[in-house]
């Protein structure tokens, strides 16, 4: 494992921890899109089906369990916890996220590394992850005051994607037969979706003002 991959996984882990921290200690999910969280729960459930068929390493297994468990529990908290769910911006979080799933499934049936159930599900999870952040970005744009934790959550998620791109470049040049077009293209699309947010985040950080996205 190279440094980019490890740093990518760690920023992903931190992003989840920041979100759980917000939910557990502040008992608030204000500014967090349930639509995006539901998509992530579906992304990890469909991607990690190989948990039962392929053993890679203890690290790999533990991380998969963490991402599965955390994404499902975040959805549970936002939907059912009696205090947390009250802070959910339901009226603002209106992205029709289920509409994203059908094109992703069709694309996965057409473009996959192998036409098997696990591989189609794997490709589906990659396509869905690429667009899963969209409801969150739309919600951020509608929310007037973005709190620090929410801003940091999205920043960490974006950093995780960017580090994975560096990891692929590194692996391409250092490993033989390391070619994964589906992962790369969907990963790059996903990273580009964060570019706009990054721009405004760093502007507000540089100018030392509260993050506000243009309407």
């Amino acid at each position: 494992m190279n440094i980019f991959r490890l740093a990518g996984d760690m920023t992903h882990l931190f992003s989840v921890l920041v979100l759980l921290l917000k939910i557990h200690t502040i008992k608030s999910c204000a500014g967090i899109s349930l639509k995006t969280q539901e998509l992530y729960a579906i992304v990890f459930t469909t991607r990690y089906l190989d948990l039962f068929t392929t053993y890679i390493s203890l690290y790999n297994t533990i991380m998969k369990l963490i991402f599965l468990g955390s994404s499902i529990s975040i959805v549970w908290y936002m939907r059912h916890h009696k205090v947390v769910r009250r802070s959910y911006d339901k009226d603002q979080d209106t992205f029709r996220h289920y509409l994203l799933m059908l094109p992703c499934l069709l694309l996965a049936l057409l473009i996959n590394e192998k036409f098997t159930f696990l591989e189609v599900m794997w490709a589906f999870s990659l396509y869905l992850e690429a667009v899963a952040i969209l409801p969150q970005l739309v919600l951020l744009q509608r929310t007037r005051n973005i709190d620090n934790l929410t801003g940091q959550y999205v920043l960490l998620l974006g950093a995780y994607r960017a580090l994975y791109v560096l990891n692929w470049i590194y692996r391409y040049f250092t490993e033989e037969n390391y070619v994964h077009w589906i992962t790369w293209v969907s990963g790059i699309v996903q990273t580009l979706l964060y570019a706009d947010f990054f721009y405004y985040y760093f502007q507000s950080w540089k100018n030392n003002v509260k993050l506000q996205l243009p309407a």
Partner: peptide
């Protein structure tokens, strides 16, 4: 190779 078929990323 065998490694190519295994998804070792998260």
């Amino acid at each position: 190779s065998v490694e190519k078929d295994v998804h070792d990323e998260l």
